[in-house]
Design a protein around this nucleic acid. Structure first.
Lengths: 105, 105
DNA sequence: ACTTACGGTAAGTCATGACCTACCAACATG
DNA sequence: CATGTTGGTAGGTCATGACTTACCGTAAGT
């Protein structure tokens, strides 16, 4: 049921950029924000949205907070799409079949 | 490169509802809009966004226009997520490994 | 040809959310 | 304890996009 939040979160290009930075491993907020053309608070807000959506995990470590991609969250969305894809293929095949049944008209 | 449009299109709940109506097969605009709590023009606009994103195909048939889910469009997004998921798992495993290397601190 | 069904486009309104600049709390370090 | 570093929160602005009604084109039926 969480896939809705996940897809909403991933719809934003800035948030996808954040996710991309975390592809190689966990990072603290400062490192994520460094080199991006938005302010650090903006990054914080995006991180909030992403972790609320179950796409990131946070592990406070002393002064800082390490953000990492949560494979489980991605997987939820992946399953939704797999399901949709399956239905689309089935509908496609059925439509093609019906089409073949009556060639003219 | 089109997956960005696809994910933006699918981020909207109304558009997901439209997609859901097409899961069982192609439908004309009127049938899609029937029973939904938004106006038909609104549906038309959503259909535009969805087909621009490569998620739907349109086949004019006489007076009407049949919309159907395009499996290819879905697949693009699916691949993006599969890729992301793979990276997330790898990063996760690496982090776990590094963690094990130095148990304390 | 006239009328009805179907559906896309135009123009305008309104809510949402992405961003900014403060500001504040918590830990670390001298 | 004082000071710097790290990062979340508050409040406000502004752009985007999801809706509406009104309108127009086109295909079908009478």
């Amino acid at each position: 049921m969480t896939y809705q939040h996940a897809i909403t979160a991933l719809a934003d290009p800035t948030r996808r950029a954040i996710i991309d930075r975390l592809r190689s491993g966990p990072l603290p907020v400062g490192a994520i924000a460094y080199g991006m053309d938005i302010s650090r608070p903006a990054v914080s807000q995006h991180l909030r949205v992403l972790s609320d959506a179950g796409l990131l995990t946070v592990t406070p470590s002393g002064n800082r907070r390490l953000y990492a991609i949560a494979p489980d969250g991605i997987d939820e969305l992946r399953r939704y799409l797999d399901n949709l894809w399956g239905d689309a293929l089935a509908a496609f095949a059925r439509a093609a079949h019906d089409q073949a049944k009556r060639p003219k008209k």
